[in-house]
Amino acid sequence: MSRRLWTDDEIEQLKRQYPDYETAEIARSLGRPIRPVYQKAASLGLKKTAAFLASDSSGRIQRGRTDERMVATQFKKGQTSWNKGVKGICGTHENSRRTQFKKGEMRGAAQHNYVPIGSERISKDGYLERKVNDDHPVPARRWVGVHRLVWEAANGPVPAGHVVCFLPGRRMSDADRITLDALELVSRAELARRNHPVTRDPELAKLVQLKGAITRQINRIAREAKEKPS
């Protein structure tokens, strides 16, 4: 469809009429769809006058006034809504209720993948986990590391900011061999320090220090070269 350009006469008419007339009426007189008229007015920076916006012709609902177009469908004082006391507004028909999910019901993949409480699995990090509930909304929280369960059975809940870890060389995935003497409680800060690559590999720590020294020397030489007068 070819684009219809605006003529000078049409633009002058739009400038004269847009502030005080309905846009739909202007569009009819120009023989154009209403959307291009709005777009052209916006590009020209045209605005409706305050007097037009306050008039009934604008189609706006004025503050403090009752629009006759809305009176017939407004709630009257003391009127009771049709759905008062009705629990829900959809899905109440018997045919709809017949296919609704019931509390505790599972279908599809959820039913296929379900395992009972007490089941065990190996996590992606290689820890033995045990399912402890079906109710938690986050599936991952339904599983707890067996090593943590062993520690909590003897000491109570794990304090905030701490984790239960295996002692070095004692990590295993056999439930019968996960005993209290193989576990320890450490802070998350200490765990992060232990797992840092520099801490786990002394040779790497030396290389990191060497890299830092080289970087500092490069920065110093670059800075002196920049400050040296040409």
Rank of each mutant, 00 (worst) to 15 (best):
R97G: 01
M1Y: 09
L5D: 11
A42Y: 04
R3H: 06
P137T: 08
E105N: 06
E190M: 10
K102V: 05
R170T: 08
M106H: 10
I221A: 12
D135N: 15
T49R: 12
Y21W: 08
Q100F: 05
A225L: 06
H136M: 07
V186M: 14
L185K: 05
S81N: 11
G85E: 09
K131E: 03
P159S: 00
T66D: 06
A222L: 08
L210R: 14
R97A: 03
N133R: 04
N95Q: 15
H162F: 01
K211H: 13
I26V: 10
E224M: 10
M70C: 15
G145R: 14
V163P: 01
A222G: 06
Q62K: 04
G91S: 01
E152L: 11
A192P: 02
I122R: 02
K76V: 05
G91N: 06
L14I: 02
E203C: 10
K48F: 05
I89W: 13
L128P: 03
R63Q: 07
G64F: 03
T7W: 13
N219G: 04
F166C: 07
C90M: 05
G64Y: 00
I34H: 05
I89C: 12
I89A: 15
E184N: 04
R188M: 12
Y18A: 04
P19K: 05
F101H: 10
K84F: 10
E12T: 14
K77V: 13
Q39D: 07
L30V: 08
I117Q: 08
E190N: 13
S2F: 03
T199A: 07
N195C: 06
D174Q: 12
L46D: 03
P159G: 00
S58P: 02
K47S: 06
R63T: 08
L5C: 12
G91H: 01
T92S: 13
T99I: 15
K226L: 00
G104V: 10
A160Y: 00
V163H: 06
S43H: 02
C90D: 08
R16Q: 14
R200M: 06
K211V: 10
R65E: 13
L204F: 02
D176Q: 07
L44Q: 04
V150Y: 11
D20M: 13
L185H: 03
